[in-house]
């Protein structure tokens, strides 16, 4: 087949605009899931490192969340959100205001991906928090700052800097994981490539195009993350040279 490659199926319209549209969907999913999982992951990590005896049930719940969602395949979770949760009228009604912009499949995919990635971000950040020396929290408390104020001003900035290489890996994983949403009918890059493939039988061209799009996005993302890591770590641990995320890390 390599002697009659037909790159025009991906380089010319309609294939090209299919793929570009797919790329735009994938990119939105990635960015929104990264933002969402950073917020949720931070809250979960903070809950897990809390020490108040009254919060023990919360800690148990959060560690159950982290263990459960990391040990169940993303695909299973996405199907659950899309065919389970989004089959409920209640959920559909709640999502209705967003439907002019985002389909229910997209929202289910985003929700699933965010919740899945949050569990990993939470673990990375938790170990970051635990590697900030105890004396830092104590010094801030001794100055009269409350627990949350001390966490926010003193511990979290350092924890983020220390955990950022690991968190960055999770961002890259999340970006690659956006591709799984094609299985629930979101029109991402891979979905579009599959459309092209089934219309033209040009499998090599279609999937290579999808691959190239992902490689480009992930490379750009790693380059960006490497810059952030360098900026962060030089402040917190000037002596330490940490490996920056390299092109494509976790899956």
């Amino acid at each position: 087949m390599f002697n009659d490659l037909s790159w025009s199926v991906v380089l010319d319209d309609p294939g090209r605009s299919f793929l570009l549209h797919g790329a735009w969907v994938s990119l939105q999913l990635a960015v929104l899931a990264i933002i969402g999982s950073t917020v949720v992951g931070t809250l979960v990590a903070l809950g897990r490192v809390s020490t108040a005896p009254a919060l023990a049930p919360l800690r148990w719940l959060l560690s159950a969340y982290v263990e459960f969602f990391r040990n169940v395949p993303l695909l299973v979770q996405l199907v659950f959100w899309s065919f389970g949760m989004f089959s409920l009228d209640l959920v559909r009604a709640a999502a209705a205001p967003l439907n002019p912009v985002y389909s229910n499949q997209f929202l289910a995919g985003l929700l699933g991906l965010t919740i899945y990635t949050s569990a990993y971000v939470a673990e990375a950040l938790r170990s970051g928090i635990q590697s900030v020396p105890r004396g830092q929290l104590e010094a801030a408390r001794a100055g009269g700052l409350g627990y949350w104020a001390a966490m926010r001003a003193v511990v979290l900035p350092q924890a983020f800097a220390l955990a950022f290489p690991a968190i960055g890996n999770q961002y890259i994983s999340a970006t690659k994981n956006t591709s799984v949403v094609m299985a629930i009918g979101v029109t991402d890059v891979v979905f579009q490539a599959q459309q092209i493939e089934s219309a033209t039988f040009a499998a090599f061209e279609a999937y290579t195009a999808a691959l190239v799009i992902f490689v480009v996005i992930c490379l750009a993302e790693s380059a960006l993350l490497a810059l952030v890591v360098r900026g962060m770590l030089t402040r917190v641990r000037p002596g330490v040279r940490t490996a920056a995320p390299t092109p494509a890390l976790e899956s």
Binding site: N177, S179, V180, V190, F214, C218
Partner: peptide, 10 residues
Amino acid sequence: RSAPLIVFIL
């Protein structure tokens, strides 16, 4: 490692 698994499977 730059490829998403699903693309790799296809």
